[in-house]
Design a protein around this nucleic acid. Structure first.
Lengths: 253, 253
DNA sequence: CCAATAGTGTCTTTCAGACAATATCCT
DNA sequence: AGGATATTGTCTGAAAGACACTATTGG
């Protein structure tokens, strides 16, 4: 059986074999190879209500004076997550509840010399307190308002993509639990989801769905102090599971 | 209302503010910054039946003589996809039906000097013919058999992750259509899915589900020649939609 | 007619979501 | 008691999957 096919979504080029890409010697490679930069989109849940992102004001060219993602250059002795943690600490003083690589950006046509490849990470901070005034040259912005700003480099795109990934991921991974403390109420978890997704969720349905997860363990404690029926506290017992990042779970780069 | 929380999944460090990561001067950066390598996991559908991946035999240290993903160094004048396309051409002579970035790998502890960051891409080839003997030092392996090999670098991990992404993505993106020609039968599309997912799919249910997609247009042509009722040919009219890569669709890096 | 695949019908189960009803605390 | 949120109950509709059945060709 033979089915003829025609056009393709990408042009098919018939050409003679090209030999395997040759390697340059070390000094030539140093001249040719772009620099590597690590940037991090940091999501903070302020009062469990809204999503905020800290940006840093550029203090040198290019894009001097514009807002940019925190980050720094990758040196030979560090992993990329080392650099990501370092810029997290420099801008927020907090350790993230979750950190993962987003994408490697490295188009040409940037206003930069030497040419730079930027590895973007995204992180989410624990949900209690975030000090919005800790550091100079750092300002927190609501995630939804950033689209209106004109950021340095292609950082508008990076943030838009990070937000998309976060909102997708909260639905099927454990980051909702990572953001909370050891014990939490279903309503607190729901607030995290609502803040990330930016929309209200039916409390009854949410409670049922979430409690169907065998990794969620009911404690015998209840949270008192509200002027209503006290909600039960739960604990998340799920292992670092494959769903978060597939075969890359726990892979520290 | 105040909910006390305790432990976290990652340790919280209270520490004094760290100043923003300083930039080194250009010559120092060249010394410190790792080299950038682009590698590509190429998926080929041989006879629409199985998934195959081409590997290249290393002809220099490190890992001399072991199988590795095709790739090459990133130079200042190229985009990363340029390099990916180039290694595609060098190993298969075919243009891919789909190409996307996978992950940036750059852990320490590699047997390499200078330290290297490797940007991995994955690609899938159109589904008709694949010449398995075109190039020297290139050999095609069944995707499922590669786990038993001992590849160079961390390429076993890279391939495992690429396979995971491909299998996830075929369910909700348009790559199934991208692999086929302009007109195709539902059975051909099903074979692509079966090859990628590695399991049989019920023909009746698959047909219904796929035809529920408004981007699939029935033509008035039928494919004759089989010794059975001739199947109708279909055409995919979907635009490059956001579902493939979220806000990054069409972003060429 | 028979073999083989295309395509349809039907039934079951699962799950998300809307929304009403009940439970239990605080003041 | 009344306010407020927690938690449960019930219903509906969408969608996936199992599987039987009909349709249409070539031989």
């Amino acid at each position: 059986m033979s089915f003829e096919t025609q056009a393709r979504s990408l042009p098919r080029q018939a050409s003679r074999p090209v030999s395997y890409v040759p390697a340059a010697n070390v000094s030539e490679r140093a001249r040719l190879s772009p620099q590597i930069q690590v940037s991090t989109v940091i999501f903070g849940l302020y009062n469990n209500k809204d999503l905020w992102i800290p940006l840093v004001k550029r203090i040198r060219a290019p894009y001097l004076g514009q807002w940019a993602l925190p980050g720094g250059p990758l040196t030979a002795a560090e992993t990329m997550t080392d650099v990501a943690y370092r810029s997290l600490k420099a801008t927020t003083d907090l350790a993230p509840a979750y950190l993962e690589q987003l994408y490697a950006f490295g188009g040409l046509g940037q206003q930069q010399a030497p040419r730079t490849v930027s590895i973007a990470y995204w992180a989410i901070l624990p949900a209690d307190e975030i000090n919005q005034d800790a550091h100079e040259n750092v300002r927190w912005f609501r995630a939804d308002e950033i689209a209106e700003l004109d950021l340095a480099f292609d950082h508008n795109t990076v943030i838009e993509y990070a937000l998309w990934r976060l909102r997708n991921k909260v639905e099927y991974s454990s980051i909702g639990y990572d953001v909370l403390g050891e014990k939490f109420t279903i309503a607190q978890l729901r607030e995290v989801y609502e803040a990330i997704l930016g929309k209200p969720i039916d409390p009854g349905n949410f409670s049922r769905q979430v409690r169907a997860n065998p990794d969620l363990e009911a404690t015998e404690e209840f949270l008192t102090g509200g002027k209503h029926r006290p909600p039960r506290l739960y604990r998340y017992t799920g292992a670092a599971d494959r769903r978060n990042n597939g075969p890359l779970s726990g892979f520290d780069q």
